[in-house]
Design a protein around this nucleic acid. Sequence first.
DNA 1: CAGCATCCTGTTGGATACTG
DNA 2: CAGTATCCAACAGGATGCTG
Lengths: 118, 118
Amino acid sequence: METDVYAKNCPSRQVLDRIGDAWSVLIVSSLKDGSLRYTELAQRINGVSPKMLTQTLRGLERDGIVTRTVHAVVPPRVDYALTTLGRSLLSLCNALQDWAEMHIGDVLDAREAYDSRV
Amino acid sequence: METDVYAKNCPSRQVLDRIGDAWSVLIVSSLKDGSLRYTELAQRINGVSPKMLTQTLRGLERDGIVTRTVHAVVPPRVDYALTTLGRSLLSLCNALQDWAEMHIGDVLDAREAYDSRV
DNA sequence: CAGCATCCTGTTGGATACTG
DNA sequence: CAGTATCCAACAGGATGCTG
C-alpha cells in the first residue's frame, strides 16, 4: 500500500522524529565548527536543562551522529563532535535554518492576517 | 549575545517547531501533487486521528502554508492545497525525506552497534 | 565537571461519541 | 463529509539534589 510510506514506524519517520526534535537540531548546529564540551554546549544552547542535554546527546550518539569522548583527567572533560553522518545531517539543519530565516516574515504575516481575520 | 540564536522564541525556532512536527511534514508531502480533500488526507496519512489532522491543518493554514477551500455543496467538500510558501516548504520536506531514506541504514546500524555494545 | 536519580506538573494526542 | 467536544493515559521535560 502506498500509504505505508507515512506509517508511524517507517524509516523516514524515525529519522523525522530525530530531526523534528528541536534540541537535536540545536546541538548539531552548535557543533558545526568542531567539538565542544558538555558545558560549552549547555552555554550555547539557551534554555536547555542538563537532563535534556544529556538525553539528547545520548540519542545522537546512539544514532551515530555525534561522538562522545571522555578524557581521563581531573576534573573530567567530555568532548562531543559530529561524525561524518552528523556532518551530512548538519547540511540539512542548515537548510532548515536558512528556510526559517528566509520565510519567517511570510509566516508571521500570515499568522497576523489569520488571527485578525477572526 | 550569540547564544540568543538558540533561544526558545527566536524566529527560526518557531519555524523549526512547525517543521519539526511530523504531521505537518506528512501533510505537506501529501499535497505535493495537488489539492486533496480532508478524507483523502486522512487515508494517505496512516495513523493520523481526525483531531490531529484538523489541528495540524489549521496550524498550516494559519502559517500560510496551505489553503482551505470550502465548497458549498451537500455533502460538504473541503479542499486543501499548498500555497506558494507551502511549495517552498515542500522542497525542504523532500530534502528531509531524501536524507532520511539515504541514511536510515547508517542510523539503524549505529543503533544496533550502540545497543549491543553495552 | 559532567552527569544521574527522583519527583512532579503540563502538554500531547489517542479513543470515543456527537453534529451541521 | 468534515469536522467538534470531551475525557483521559502517557509522555515530555523542568526543578532540585546528589555523585564519581
